[in-house]
Write a protein that binds this DNA or RNA. Structure first.
Length: 639
DNA sequence: AAGCGGCTCC
């Protein structure tokens, strides 16, 4: 109960009219309670401003009720967030309660909510009110600092931790590790980690996660190997890190090791492993994880479902992706975008655009990524007018500023459709400085249109923007070769050599009975190489009969024509295909993955072969899927 | 009353 003196004191600090003139809202709520003397909790929580708070206090004093009935965290937030309103101090002075805990719970709510800056503000107010932070205060503020990437406030908290003697508190030290690392001060974080008198599994997990996020995967793995004990989060952090750094194979290897150690994956682990499966095209593992997810009740998890969709799409199983999408009770923009992008990758532009329209009908708002998918769909199928319209609609209808990637899609769309001049105008009038990808798309269009001069213009820019990318030299050299300008082609190859640019080795892979077999061009080390070449020769006879003519212009090397042919016949995707034909049942679909884009000659060859062997051949290249069937490809030769 | 995670893409 409030001592009378204090009560009078507080009451006298209020203007008189607060006692009698309640706001209509409060008056209603009090009137509703009629003559009930004790305000209900609902009534007491019913204030959002200093003004209303004063009225509630006035009510309590007037009805002779203790101020301790006030919800103190709410008092703290209403008071502390309003500058120059020191009412809180007076109220706290009247109540026997450790003040800091009240502030803390308010701080915690703010740090975990949507107005995180208010947490920082509240923390500063606390210091003005001379409230000494405790361990929990520090922990909550650090959480807010991490969310806001506010290192300067974080350093103030760090100073408090030192000053108040909390520096051996492991939870706070871990929070500091996290803070420095996420704010880009990895070196400071590492220093702190190194001098920690003791660490727990969380400390290690933080460092592993952050190093991997930064791309320092080797150091992350070093720590992972050193740490004294690992929990599920440690494994998950490392697996996610590998996936993030493009080391999907290592991710899968580690996942299997984790399973052997007796730990079971949770939703986050599942997402990481599925992403690895998507990268590798590892359908069998992906399916197993899908079943496991269903059994474990992860089906309701949106992240898991979104990643499943992506996995099935990248493994070439559009139908399975659709099924997951259909079954989802709640879909986020990511689900829709993944599905649209997937349909685009498979060349099903109409369906992709239809899905986009359905999405709009449900009231879902598209984002940048959604439009990338939509524009991809248009460019893969040469829908120029639709693409232009979608690009315009981004800013006009959805207030989304196109990024360099969207400009890239447009350049790709225009130049591949043969509108090189428009594409060029588009590039030079872009509000963003064009990068290598933009000129690279343009160059790709020049190749299809066989426009040497425009290609040379693109190369001038690429020589500055991305001089070490082998792909551009190869395309340029091919353009010259196709124009029979052999000397120029040789000059480009020499330029490439002089600049020390190395050709990315092409590889293709195929999975037979769960084992992935990889082939590189000219591969004669494979145990079944002899047999592969033999079968190829037989196949070639039938192919020639069907009208196949080798397209040796794609071969860069200086050699005799028949040598070039031989070289052509050892392309990695052809080796993988023949190996697949040898090791699967008749009629079974063959699935091949390639790290680069499928070559033109292989594309022509696969069409003919699909007819001869009466099989479906699905090839996932760097850009998209090609599904060869009955002598045709799903890309309709537009790629 | 506290500290460590996940998805769509170029």
């Amino acid at each position: 109960m409030l001592p009378m003196v204090q009560s009078v004191c507080l009451a006298s600090s209020l203007p008189n009219h607060y006692h009698t003139h309640l706001s209509p809202k409060l008056k209603r709520s009090f009137d509703a309670k009629n003559n009930v003397q004790i305000p209900t909790s609902e009534t007491l929580y019913n204030f959002n401003s200093p003004f209303e708070l004063k009225q509630v206090v006035a009510f309590l004093i007037k009805t002779n009720k203790p101020l301790s009935l006030l919800p103190l965290p709410r008092v703290a937030s209403v008071c502390a967030l309003t500058p120059n309103f020191s009412f809180a101090q007076q109220i706290f002075n009247c109540i026997e309660q450790p003040e800091v805990s009240v502030w803390n719970s308010c701080l915690r709510n703010l740090a975990e909510g949507n107005c995180v800056t208010n947490a920082i503000f509240l923390f500063h107010q606390m210091r003005i009110y001379n409230v000494v932070p405790d361990i929990f205060t520090c922990s909550f503020v650090l959480k807010a600092c991490v969310k806001l990437l506010d290192l300067s406030c974080g350093k103030i908290v760090h100073a408090y931790i030192e000053k108040l003697g909390f520096q051996s508190n492991l939870v706070l030290l871990n929070a500091l590790l996290h803070l420095y690392a996420t704010c880009g001060a990895m070196a400071d974080s590492m220093l702190l980690f190194d001098k920690m008198p003791q660490r727990d599994v969380v400390s290690w997990n933080i460092m592993i996660t952050q190093l991997a996020k930064k791309g320092d995967i080797d150091e992350a793995f070093e720590l992972f190997s050193q740490m004294p004990e690992r929990n599920l989060r440690s494994w998950t952090a490392m697996i996610t890190g590998f996936v993030h750094c493009g080391k999907a194979k290592e991710a899968v290897r580690l996942f299997k090791e984790m399973e052997e150690s007796g730990l079971s994956a949770n939703e986050v682990t599942v997402v990481a492993v599925l992403a690895a499966c998507a990268d590798l095209g590892a359908l069998e593992l992906g399916r197993r994880i899908h079943e496991y997810s269903n059994k474990s009740g992860f089906k309701r998890n949106v992240h898991v479902c979104n990643t499943l969709i992506d996995m099935y799409i990248k493994c070439g199983f559009l139908e399975a992706a659709k099924a997951v999408f259909e079954e989802m009770k709640e879909r986020t923009i990511v689900s829709w975008s993944a599905m649209i992008q997937g349909l685009a990758m498979h060349g099903q532009a109409d369906e992709a655009l239809e899905l986009f329209n359905n999405m709009i009908k449900t009231g879902m708002k598209p984002n940048e990524v959604t439009f990338l998918g939509v524009l991809h769909a248009c460019s893969h199928m040469g829908l120029v007018n639709e693409g232009r319209e979608f690009f315009a609609s981004m800013t006009r209808d959805y207030n989304i500023t196109p990024q360099i990637e969207h400009y890239g899609c447009m350049v790709d769309l225009l130049s591949r459709a043969g509108l090189l001049k428009e594409a060029y105008e588009f590039i030079v009038s872009m509000p963003i400085k064009p990068n290598g990808v933009i000129w690279g798309s343009f160059l790709g269009g020049c190749r299809i249109q066989k426009d040497v001069e425009m290609a040379e213009e693109a190369m001038r820019h690429l020589g500055i923007l991305d001089p070490l990318n082998d792909g551009y030299y190869i395309i340029m050299s091919n353009i010259y070769a196709e124009a029979k300008r052999w000397e120029d082609a040789a000059r480009v190859r020499k330029l490439m050599k002089d600049r020390g640019v190395k050709k990315t080795p092409g590889w293709s892979s195929i999975t037979i009975a769960g084992v992935m077999h990889e082939f590189v061009a000219g591969d004669d080390n494979h145990p079944q190489a002899e047999e592969i070449f033999e079968i190829w020769d037989k196949l070639l006879e039938q192919m020639r009969f069907k009208g196949y003519v080798p397209n040796t212009s794609v071969v860069l090397l200086d050699m005799e024509e028949n040598e070039k042919e031989k070289y052509l016949y050892r392309h990695s995707e052809k080796l993988a295909l023949v190996f697949g034909l040898m090791n699967t049942k008749p009629g079974e679909t063959i699935r091949i993955m390639k790290n680069l884009r499928v070559c033109e000659d292989c594309h022509a060859a696969f069409k003919v072969i699909s007819e001869i062997v009466k099989r479906e051949i699905v090839v996932r290249d760097r850009n998209r899927f090609h599904c060869f069937k009955d002598g045709l490809c799903s890309c309709k030769d537009y790629w």
